[in-house]
Design a binder for these strands. Structure first.
Lengths: 224, 224
DNA sequence: GGGAATATTCCC
DNA sequence: GGGAATATTCCC
């Protein structure tokens, strides 16, 4: 809890001591006050309580402490502050300078040193983040390289696969062609040898071994 | 050129008017001044010129304006400032507040608003960077997942390819086996149809078309 | 009405 | 001796 400032306390005492009720007094259910004689206020009250007898300076102080100027039914100035009322002495310490200013420049936030320290810390954090970000970017480049390498491999693999199929197809056709050539009768001896070879390669456990060979000659037909 | 401040001008006038020579007077060839009667200085001089009659406040002002306190041969206080000397009125405006303060906290560097603005800007930048960094990390995780998926696919593909080759070899052997079964004479009609189909499929431009079919019967040998 | 300069006080 | 809070003045 901040202590009540001298200006506010003086003002409260001026009103409470009741020595100057003809010059300055409570108004509107003692929630406000008014100065009924400005000249006397300057010459008597201010002369006694303040270092100046200029009522404008007194008004300036009121504004600094957040008092608002209103007008009563007679259009006279009446001063008001939510924490300034007769008998509400416990609230006086809540009346602080510059509370009507925007909050960001009041209180401890206004401590230059603190802000400058904070700035230093922020700069440090920022630099750390920039460093980390650079590392991330580097890591990204590595990933990009790896990804590119993977894609290249896949393309090669894909091409290889494609070529192999084509090759296999060609090879397959070639085999058939060769086989046809053989059974066309131009190389009957070779065909016999191949069939023998193939039969040997067949798994003995397959039913092929139980098959009885037919004596029927191959029903070749030249008119195909 | 800044204008001479009220305090300095008042002080100069106090010395020059010569109304108070018994209280305050020039010293040391008029380059300094001294106060010979502090009490009278407060009650008479300060009462007339300042808002306070506390000589300590006067000293505070002197310090603020950069005056230095020295001691004369009688160990009395003597006040000095390079720009404050009798007849050197043109130099008075060079006497400015706070010139004895360290440079780094004087002038525009001491502009709180500027520092606070910088503070705000730094915080904004930092938040932006934190946000961006989070996004980068997220993106990394996505890339890692994708990369892992690609590698998995490649492994599967690679395995598939390997299996396919094995299968193809088996299949190829099976085909030959089936063919051998056919030419074993159990289904000669089917074989003829297959050969016809195969011959049709052969490119007409290949030499096969020019081949003359042999009338020789298939030299089947049951003793294989 | 309030920003900013200047003055005064308080306090380490 | 000087930092910082408060008061006063000046000026837009």
């Amino acid at each position: 809890m901040q202590k009540t400032s001298k200006f506010v306390l003086d003002l409260y005492n001026i009103l409470e001591c009741e020595d100057f009720t003809s010059i300055i007094n409570w108004a509107d259910c003692c929630k406000m006050f008014q100065i009924s004689d400005s000249k006397k206020f300057e010459d008597i009250v201010m002369k006694q309580y303040f270092k100046t007898t200029n009522i404008q300076s007194f008004y300036r102080q009121l504004r600094i402490y957040g008092f608002k100027i209103k007008r009563n039914s007679n259009c006279q100035k009446v001063f008001h502050h939510i924490y300034f009322a007769k008998g509400q002495q416990q609230n006086l310490s809540k009346i602080q300078k510059g509370k009507s200013l925007t909050d960001q420049i009041s209180g401890e936030m206004y401590n230059v040193n603190q802000i400058m320290k904070e700035n230093q810390e922020l700069k440090r954090q920022l630099n750390l983040m920039i460093l980390f970000q650079k590392r991330l970017v580097k890591q990204f480049e590595i990933h990009q390289t790896i990804q590119k390498a993977i894609i290249d491999k896949m393309i090669k693999l894909s091409n290889l696969l494609c070529n192999e199929r084509i090759h296999q197809t060609i090879l397959s056709e070639k085999k058939i062609e060769n086989f046809v050539n053989l059974i066309d009768g131009f190389q009957p001896e070779l065909l016999v040898r191949i069939i023998r070879f193939l039969l040997k390669k067949i798994d003995p456990k397959t039913p092929i071994n139980e098959i009885q060979y037919s004596p029927t000659p191959f029903p070749f037909n030249a008119q195909i």
